[in-house]
Design a binder for these strands. Structure first.
Lengths: 142, 142
DNA sequence: TCTGTATACTTGAGCTATCAACGATCATAG
DNA sequence: CTATGATCGTTGATAGCTCAAGTATACAGA
């Protein structure tokens, strides 16, 4: 059954990747994900809500995750001039360096554990199939 | 990128499924998974280690998960005659009824959110592709 | 028989994420 | 201008899982 396979595959690959990322850079998969999204964003910053939507976390999940990244000095809060409700999460210089230094090793891990299993065609197929799932298309830049 | 898609797809579908399962039957996805595996096993019981390996949880994860199922009366411990280290997790009558009553509604949810997106061929393709991932082939009966 | 190593399981501490409730701020319609 | 309702964000309580360490049993070799 494809669904079970999907569950197991996610658990297995994710476990491997996250322990490697943790050991090599002290980052969670979610941490990494957030930092990357910020680094891709206009001005290296995003509203917390938008961030939540793209990485599929709850608002409160984002608050707590960013707490950590702020404490580490990789992200800082910025107020929004036009709307006092929103605060941006902005990458600091240190944060930019952090993600840049983590990216290559993590990409290599992803490639090893995931990408290397597939040809370009197969990757495209997989991508297309998974994109059909409800909400799976949230912010898949790159 | 297929990997990001994979992550998002899992987060999205899984979130939906688990809240439905929780509301309808008071079960976690993992709970359900464990109960199903037990129901499929010889004599409706499995050694805890084997259970851990098939659903990809830690030994301690299994202990705690089973704590809950035991408290609910769906699973009971059984000692092993030939090896005093092992204890079986065995489905009780109530547990069997529970999983039987939950199965159809959950299967429908899985079908709606996952299966219905694909033809039989596509499901087979997806299954084959995901099966290549390291460890993704752990106990995918059915 | 003793000794060392591997396996099965549990427990305490900690982490990440959730939900529910709450306080602000904004936008719109009377 | 004010009430209503939506949106943005944080916080307390809690769930589910992990890791590290510990206990107990099994087994194989000196």
């Amino acid at each position: 059954m494809a669904w079970i396979r999907f569950l197991r595959a996610h658990a297995a690959v994710t476990r491997q990747l996250s322990t490697r990322l943790e050991n090599a850079h002290g980052l969670t998969l979610s941490d990494f994900d957030v930092l990357v999204q910020l680094s891709l964003a206009e001005g290296n910053r995003l509203r917390r809500v938008d961030l939540a939507r793209t990485v599929l976390l709850t608002a409160s999940g984002i608050t707590r995750l960013l707490d950590g990244l702020e404490r580490a000095g990789w992200v800082e809060k910025q107020r929004c001039a036009s709307d006092a409700r929103v605060t941006y999460a902005a990458l600091t210089k240190a944060g930019l360096e952090k993600i840049e230094s983590a990216r290559s090793s993590h990409s290599a891990d992803v490639e090893e554990l995931f990408g290397s299993q597939y040809s370009e065609n197969e990757k495209a197929t997989l991508d297309e199939l998974l994109a059909r799932l409800p909400l799976a298309d949230t912010a898949c830049q790159k």
